[in-house]
């Protein structure tokens, strides 16, 4: 049997994992499903592209690629800056909208507001950049043989490596640092966190910055491996939710594993059933988990 679909699934799963990590953190700490999270992926990709265009325009030459990858350090630097900007965008939306709804105690309304925000953010990208797809690089990559009949391009392997590094970093941050402990405490009981002396509003700011930045990196990875389109994030929203819920809300390792599960299930569906049904995979997984184990694989909270 050709195992290439496993490799494809791993690569898709890697791009999902970071986005799902952001979903799981914001969901756990803010206690609402943010339907605008997918748009942070798109905005991260478009901001990176715009920054790269600006830098290229100012320096007079497009950003150089770093062999064997199709992009270079210049674009990575732009992606980092774009990730920070996306985090700030998430924070601004929270200050303008979600925080006020939280203070009013109407978190369910925040879900609907996030749905409105997601439509508006996507439409704004369409208005600014049009719906035609764009690419970070025109370069065609040769897939390297990896054994067992599997192949992957250098870019794909690079995305997997970045995901592993970043996810491990976030997991360590949560497990070992003061900020991480505070985030876990706020996720469990915000009111107790306050009286323990934790600045809950500050922790929530950190959560948005981190979640937005991770989403942006995920969006750049997706843009690099596939293409950049205004609807790219919205189309990933269901897979991201599925990955976060399969893994268990609040668990970073869970989000990574959930991302891989969704990615491999999608790739298997494409291989054995048909590419047109790929988008249904997340829904099936989601319903399965909600029915059988609503806390997910790594979830502790009921």
């Amino acid at each position: 049997m050709n195992l290439q679909f496993l490799m494809d699934g791993l690569v898709v799963g890697a791009t999902l994992a970071l986005g799902a990590t952001g979903v799981t953190l914001t969901y756990a700490n803010l206690r609402f499903a943010n339907f605008a999270h997918g748009e942070f992926l798109s905005w991260g990709a478009y901001l990176t592209m715009t920054l790269a265009g600006l830098v290229g325009g100012l320096s007079g030459a497009p950003l150089a690629a770093q062999d064997p990858f199709s992009i270079g350090m210049g674009l990575l630097a732009c992606a980092l800056l774009a990730a920070a900007l996306t985090g700030v965008l998430a924070l601004l939306i929270d200050v303008a909208l979600f925080r006020r709804l939280r203070q009013r105690g109407t978190a369910v309304t925040a879900v609907m507001a996030s749905f409105g925000v997601s439509m508006a953010l996507r439409a704004l990208l369409e208005a600014l950049y049009s719906t035609s797809p764009r690419y970070f690089s025109e370069e065609l990559q040769i897939a390297l043989p990896l054994g067992a009949g599997m192949r992957a391009t250098p870019d794909q392997l690079g995305v997997c490596a970045v995901t592993v590094l970043l996810a491990a970093g976030v997991a360590l941050l949560l497990a070992r640092t003061a900020v991480g402990r505070q985030m876990r405490a706020v996720a469990e009981n915000p009111s107790l966190a306050q009286v323990v002396g934790i600045d809950v509003a500050g922790v929530i700011r950190t959560t948005w910055l981190l979640g937005g930045a991770l989403a942006a990196v995920s969006g750049v990875a997706l843009g690099l491996l596939v293409q950049v389109r205004p609807s790219m994030g919205a189309e990933l929203l269901l897979p991201l939710f599925a990955a976060a819920i399969v893994g268990g809300i609040g668990s970073v390792p869970g989000a990574v594993v959930g991302g891989l599960v969704v990615g491999i299930a999608e790739a298997a569906t494409v291989r054995f059933i048909g590419a047109e049904w790929r988008a249904a995979v997340s829904f099936v997984l989601l319903i399965g988990v909600l029915l059988l184990r609503p806390t997910g694989l790594f979830g502790r909270r009921a």
């Binding site: 402990r181 876990r184 405490a185 996720a187 469990e188 009981n189 107790l192 909270r301």
Partner: peptide, 8 residues
């Protein structure tokens, strides 16, 4: 009640 973080 709920005076400790049970998941920590």
């Amino acid at each position: 009640i709920e005076n400790v973080f049970a998941t920590l």
